[in-house]
């Protein structure tokens, strides 16, 4: 059965830490960092990379367009 695996790249310096992506992720991949970025925001970071399905929901709702999404088909 074909399965997809995803990965996201977050431009942490441009992230404003709004957490909208965290809400939008169906597989709880994203969390907020304990440390802050150059703007002083707790930025979004990938907490559970293995669960990412590359659905792009996070990137689509990100107001600042800081998330890039990749997806690859893999066999189970």
């Amino acid at each position: 059965m074909a399965k997809v695996k995803g990965a996201i790249v977050i431009d942490v310096d441009k992230c404003k830490g709004c957490e909208v992506c965290v809400e939008a992720c169906p597989t709880d991949v994203i969390g907020m960092a304990d440390e802050v970025n150059i703007k002083g925001y707790h930025f979004a970071e990938v907490k559970n990379p293995e669960d990412c399905i590359g659905c792009a929901n996070c990137a689509i709702v990100c107001p600042d367009g800081v998330i890039t999404v990749y997806r690859k088909k893999v066999k189970a």
């Binding site: 695996k5 995803g6 792009a56 990137a59 367009g65 890039t68 999404v69 990749y70 066999k75």
Partner: peptide, 22 residues
Amino acid sequence: MKEENITTTDIISDENLVYKKT
């Protein structure tokens, strides 16, 4: 290719890009 062999680095490449800020 086995799933367990796929790393994030493997996925992050131009041919797998699905969403990028325009």
